[in-house]
């Protein structure tokens, strides 16, 4: 694989997008969307992180293997948080017959 060199223009565009998203997430934080506040804030964070991974970290132009490594890291994080929550969010849902 020959190295792909990202142009300075792309870097600057990504930087500007990240700055705009930061401003948006701060402004949106003061609005009340009820339970959706968490979703909005995290969605913006995920978009920002994806921009950094894809362009600053060159994953967009990288091998399938590198993409797989990134995805597996995220999948395992989801396993860790998800299965732990399967305990915490279901406590008391199903009771013991005796109690």
């Amino acid at each position: 694989m020959t190295e792909h060199i990202t142009s300075v223009r792309t870097y600057l565009l990504v930087f500007i997008a990240l700055m705009i998203l930061t401003a948006v997430t701060v402004l949106v934080a003061f609005q009340d969307f009820g339970a959706w506040n968490d979703v909005v804030a995290l969605t913006i964070a995920v978009i920002k992180a994806s921009l950094v991974v894809l362009f600053f970290m060159h994953i967009y132009h990288s091998t399938r293997l590198s993409k797989l490594v990134v995805v597996s890291g995220l999948v395992w994080l989801v396993i860790l948080i998800g299965l732990t929550l399967s305990d915490y969010l279901s406590r008391g849902l199903v009771g013991l017959a005796s109690s």
Partner: peptide, 25 residues
Amino acid sequence: MGLYWHFVDIVWIFLFPLLYLLGRN
């Protein structure tokens, strides 16, 4: 080193909303 630095940036991209923003409303 670039990859490392960007990773540290990404951690902050998540820490900022989780710690500073959620619940402001």
